[in-house]
Design a binder for these strands. Structure first.
Lengths: 191, 191
DNA sequence: ACACTAAACTAACACTTGTTAGTTTGCTTG
DNA sequence: CAAGCAAACTAACAAGTGTTAGTTTAGTGT
């Protein structure tokens, strides 16, 4: 495991600040203070504030895209695919607790790569929707509007970063199992 | 129905801008431009940018608090109470589509009323959790960690503002019904 | 015609913003 | 010891920030 470069350290600390106050409210002087240096010194390692946001968001978005392409190409049942998606979100969210906040709330401040981000996101949602549509056809899942189902599951998964404390892997597995139960079977007691 | 005051109009337009870019990224000059006046003129109607944020957030938070106190005091079953909470969120979200974004993402920029907001929110969550705990005791709902259930349902409900388009009441009822199904019974097809 | 008032305006303020230029510091390597 | 280099520094910039003070405008009721 190579040690973190100074640049990676800055990006990591920035993500943490972005989570607390949002991209726009964090100044380069805030970031510098958190790094215990002066603002101008940051520019020895990064190109701009924008660039920091881009690295954070695009890197995570691509992890989701990659994960979804695995799920898409597996030939599991729809329910199993849903479980894989849930596991994907727990995995990516737990390894990017801070970055997920920027992904969810600050993507609109992307400039050069805004359209790229939007494409990744809409492709992801299309894949997700198609899985649900297949599941309905196959009689595996309820015949409710796929968009509403997707919205419901996806917003829960997208908010995981708020919820996942610093848990060890074992607790993350528990969380994954609980989410599988709740999102798939609901909260009502089965008879 | 009284016509909107100029102040209310400014707050409404501000909420819309806050939804698009977040509180910190919206300048008083942005807001003035959207109102088709100069920035200084805004101050004939409002005290500060902060005050605008406060009105938006606190007003909505209090609607939720009020709604929850109705639910808490009804003597319905747990599942029925859950349905009432879902209806509450659809109602409040659909009448505050723009303000909900500030509530969810910009509450940390509250200053004087930050602690008041936090108290309202944690009281709300406690009421919610207690309903789930009662439901588990009564054997109505699954014996999964109440916090995970609450998180799952609440994050979906809190994101409704992203989802609710300008639908008429009839479509909102459909949405409410679909959410009832999904959040309570899950997506799996019942046998 | 008059005073009153709501709501706009212009001009300016003190401060903060992201960023650049040029310089210094202190470690590592030949 | 000398050279090279990564990474810090100071100083400054132009533009943008929320907000205030004082003034003008246009419409209303007496």
């Amino acid at each position: 495991m190579k040690p973190e470069t100074r640049q990676q350290e800055i990006i990591r600390v920035a993500a943490k600040l972005f989570k607390e106050k949002g991209y726009s409210a964090v100044t380069m002087r805030d970031l510098a203070t958190a790094m215990d240096i002066k603002a101008a010194s940051l520019y020895n390692h990064i190109n701009s504030k924008q660039d920091i946001l881009e690295s954070i968001i695009i890197s995570i978005a691509e992890q989701f895209t990659e994960g979804m392409s695995s799920v898409r190409e597996s030939n599991a049942t729809c329910i199993e695919k849903l479980k894989e998606i849930i596991a994907l979100h727990v995995e990516v969210s737990s390894t990017n607790i801070y970055g997920m906040a920027a992904l969810n709330h600050d993507w609109m401040h992307l400039e050069a790569r805004l359209n790229y981000y939007k494409k990744l996101r809409s492709d992801y949602e299309n894949d997700f929707r198609n899985i649900l549509i297949e599941g309905i056809k196959a009689g595996e899942i309820s015949d409710i509007k796929p968009d509403v189902m997707m919205f419901s599951i996806l917003t829960t998964l997208r908010s995981l970063y708020l919820w996942i404390p610093k848990k060890e892997a074992i607790h993350l597995n528990e969380l994954t199992n609980d989410l599988n139960e709740i999102l798939i079977k609901g909260v009502i007691k089965q008879i």
